[in-house]
Amino acid sequence: MGTSETSTVQDGDLVTRLEEEGEIAADYLEEFLDIADLDGDIDIDVEHGRAAVEIVAEDVADDSLRRLVGADGEVLDALQELTRLAVQTKTGERSRLMLDIAGYRAERRTALVEVARVAIERVKAEGGPVTLDPMNPFERKVVHDAVAEAGLVSDSEGVEPERRVVIRPA
């Protein structure tokens, strides 16, 4: 078996494992929704080398799932951690699963890319570092990715919950 065949098999094994994580997470979240008496469909995918699960409203006009997002996504973050623990309990391996509810993370990602774009332009124009407001790990990752794509460098500084991204020229 050649190197490319080996990596294809390994990639296939990874995708299968991530799909399994998604299925375990979906089962856990379906039970959660039943207990909470909330309606929602669960979409499972594999994105950027991790399982991605989203709870979407069965009825587009139904806004009840937004309660599971909470202020600034705090409830969503907690539910994501609980879901990761449920997956870890079943598989014995740490999960990096990403959970979204009613498109919150997708909307937040779009807004964060715009925040990063404005900060990147400031760094380019002024030549010095720009420090952003505190962000959670998901938000910092989105900004770091946008900064890297723009050819600049960024670091996270501080301690949670005050950890923030600093963007610098390359």
Rank of each mutant, 00 (worst) to 15 (best):
A148W: 03
L33D: 00
E139A: 13
P137V: 14
G92R: 05
E157A: 10
D59C: 09
A71N: 09
S4C: 02
L85N: 02
D27S: 12
A119P: 11
Q88P: 00
E157M: 04
Q80P: 07
E31S: 09
T91M: 05
D145I: 11
E5G: 12
N136S: 12
V9R: 12
R163Q: 11
G103C: 14
S7V: 13
D77L: 05
V159Y: 11
V159N: 12
V130E: 15
L68D: 03
D27F: 05
L79S: 06
T131E: 15
G2R: 12
V143R: 06
F138T: 12
G12D: 07
V75L: 07
R67L: 15
A106M: 10
V15K: 11
E31H: 06
D59A: 13
G49V: 05
V159I: 14
T16P: 00
G103D: 14
H144S: 04
G49C: 04
G92S: 05
R84L: 01
V56L: 14
G70V: 06
R50C: 04
V46N: 00
E107D: 15
V53H: 05
A71K: 11
T16K: 08
E74D: 07
A106N: 11
V165I: 12
Q10I: 15
V53C: 09
L65C: 08
G12C: 04
I55H: 06
T110E: 15
D11L: 09
L82H: 01
E21M: 00
I55K: 05
E162R: 14
E54W: 11
